[in-house]
Computed example of a mutant assay.
Amino acid sequence: MAIPRALKIKNQIVEVDIKRIYAWCIVPYDSLKRSAKDRISMLKRLGIKKYAYDWREEHLPYMAKELKLAKQNDLSIVGIWMWIDGNFDSINTLSNCNLKVFNILEEVDYQGQIWVSFEANFFENLSNSEAVKKGVEMIAYLSKKANAIKCKIALYNHGGWFGEPINQIKIIEALPKQDLGIVYNFHHAHKHIDTFPEMATLMLPYLWNVNLNGLKKEGPKILRIGEGDYEKKMINLLLEKGYKGDFGILGHVEDADAERILKANLNGLKNNTS
């Protein structure tokens, strides 16, 4: 199946290079619970040459094998998920799982992006200035660890205080010597729809990746691309503003075959092409 080369948005064609499309949310979200080998075969069938690696603790024993196998099959890993929870992670201290991820990335010589997001409890009961200060200290710590293994930190919006791009930008601007970016997610963008034009302008200098999703203000959270009311305008806006990064296609559906969900999203793009 060919990945669409363009999106048709209100009778306009905006080019999207097929090399800019990657899969996201396909490791824990897959009713078939594919092995690394089967997951890579699935992506090849779909014509997808890149994916980002999200994980749960159960996947860590197999993570190194998968990253190596992806490289052997000429698949690029654009990012590695990292979840910071205030119950287990603090400034200068990481949970055993997150430490394991850093060790795996060093072991396999992965040199890419680490996508960081936070549980709301990390910033609980803090004023905005206090939250910025704590966020800056934690991201500085993570960036130092990432740089030591030739990786970079990207800030990932996942709701809560840290999920607001304006707060992420404050953290990035407080660390001008660090090479930090933003991963923006349409499936966490419902309350940003009306302000997205202004937000996109602010994010653009730092925007490394955008994960696509259908968008209706009333939800649902996960919706096939092409079934929403706003995603086309938002994609078009990003491209018009000069966004040069990659686009993620979600497999983020509980108890569903990841291949079927990815294919539906690819069709959602294809059906809007000429």
Rank of each mutant, 00 (worst) to 15 (best):
I84H: 10
N209V: 04
L75D: 06
K144R: 11
G226N: 02
Q12N: 07
N236D: 07
V14E: 04
L7Y: 04
S41C: 14
H192N: 08
D257A: 07
S127N: 09
H188P: 05
Y29W: 08
E254L: 14
R34N: 02
Y29I: 02
Q72P: 09
A258C: 14
I84R: 09
F162T: 00
I21D: 10
K19C: 09
K68T: 15
R260W: 04
I193V: 04
K170V: 01
K191M: 06
I9R: 08
E15Q: 12
Y230V: 00
E227T: 01
S274P: 13
E227W: 00
L32R: 12
D109E: 15
I40D: 14
L239F: 09
A154I: 08
E227M: 05
G163V: 02
G160I: 00
N271S: 12
N125L: 14
I193A: 04
F88S: 13
R39Q: 08
L239H: 07
E218N: 13
V27R: 03
L202A: 10
N128Y: 05
S35F: 01
G86D: 09
A6I: 14
K49D: 15
A64W: 00
A64I: 04
E58S: 14
A23D: 08
I9H: 03
L250Y: 12
L204W: 00
Y110W: 14
E137K: 04
N128V: 08
K50I: 06
L212Q: 05
L215I: 08
K134L: 05
M138Y: 00
L262H: 06
I18P: 06
E106I: 04
I222Y: 10
L75I: 15
A189V: 01
Y156F: 10
L204K: 06
D30Q: 05
Y29D: 07
E218C: 08
I80L: 03
E231Q: 05
G159D: 02
L250V: 04
A189N: 05
E137R: 07
G79T: 15
I222G: 02
A148L: 12
D89T: 15
L7P: 01
P197M: 07
S41L: 12
I77S: 10
I48M: 13
V101A: 05
G159P: 00
D179V: 12
I235S: 03
L75Y: 11
M1S: 15
K152W: 00
L32G: 09
L269R: 11
I261N: 07
E66I: 09
D194S: 12
A256C: 13
K241H: 08
I172R: 00
I172M: 01
C97H: 14
K241Y: 07
M42Q: 01
Y243W: 01
E218T: 13
C97R: 13
L269V: 12
W161S: 02
K33S: 09
W24T: 14
N125Q: 15
L46M: 03
L94R: 14
I84V: 14
N147H: 15
T195W: 10
A146G: 06
K152E: 15
L69C: 12
N185D: 14
A2G: 13
F88C: 15
I169F: 00
N92H: 13
S35C: 10
L75R: 11
